[in-house]
């Protein structure tokens, strides 16, 4: 029974891992920290998995737990001091259809998002994932109207960071 549970969890997490990776990218800035957070999220997901009844999609459930872990439970471990940033670690663009200029612009975008605080990052993540304000408000526990206001402020803030 519990082995089945484990198997089903591992398979679903493997298939949905990119959503966790994306959260790790927003909240950490280095490969070690990324892997560290990924592992903590995996542990938290596994702990919460028996309560997951499949009322929502696995990915929806997983990103909620992952966001909560990143914002609330996770403490950067002191052992991983990071000197390598994502710039060297990941190629933001994998397809060749993008040109260099756009790639450069995206890199700057990610750097700008890195400067936001944890809550703002969560809102950005939910926005990028195309979640509506109802879901954003439920995920974070704030009102829908205020989530919308805050999102607009973040857009303004990003614009300011990018075009000083």
């Amino acid at each position: 029974m519990s082995e089945n549970l484990e198997q089903s969890f591992v398979k679903q997490l493997k298939d949905n891992q990119n959503i966790i990776h994306k959260i790790c990218r927003l909240y950490t800035n280095g490969e070690d920290a990324h892997n560290d957070l990924f592992q903590e999220i995996t542990i938290q997901l596994w702990k919460a998995f028996p309560k997951f009844r499949g009322e929502s999609k696995f990915s929806t459930w997983a990103y909620r737990v992952a966001l909560n872990t990143a914002i609330t439970l996770y403490r950067k471990s002191t052992r991983s001091v990071n000197t390598v940033t994502y710039e060297g670690q990941f190629h933001f663009i994998s397809q060749e259809e993008y040109n260099h200029e756009e790639e450069e612009q995206l890199k700057l975008m990610y750097q700008a998002v890195q400067q936001l605080n944890d809550i703002e990052k969560a809102l950005v993540f939910l926005y990028l994932e195309d979640k509506d304000y109802n879901e954003i408000s439920e995920t974070l526990g704030i009102s829908e109207v205020n989530a919308r206001v805050k999102m607009n402020r973040i857009k303004g803030k990003l614009k300011k960071i990018l075009n000083p």
Binding site: F92, L106, M109, Y127, L128
Partner: peptide, 12 residues
């Protein structure tokens, strides 16, 4: 700006 990121985000 954010929509540019959104476009790339999905293919990422």
């Amino acid at each position: 700006e954010l929509d540019l990121l959104k476009k790339a985000w999905k293919k990422d």
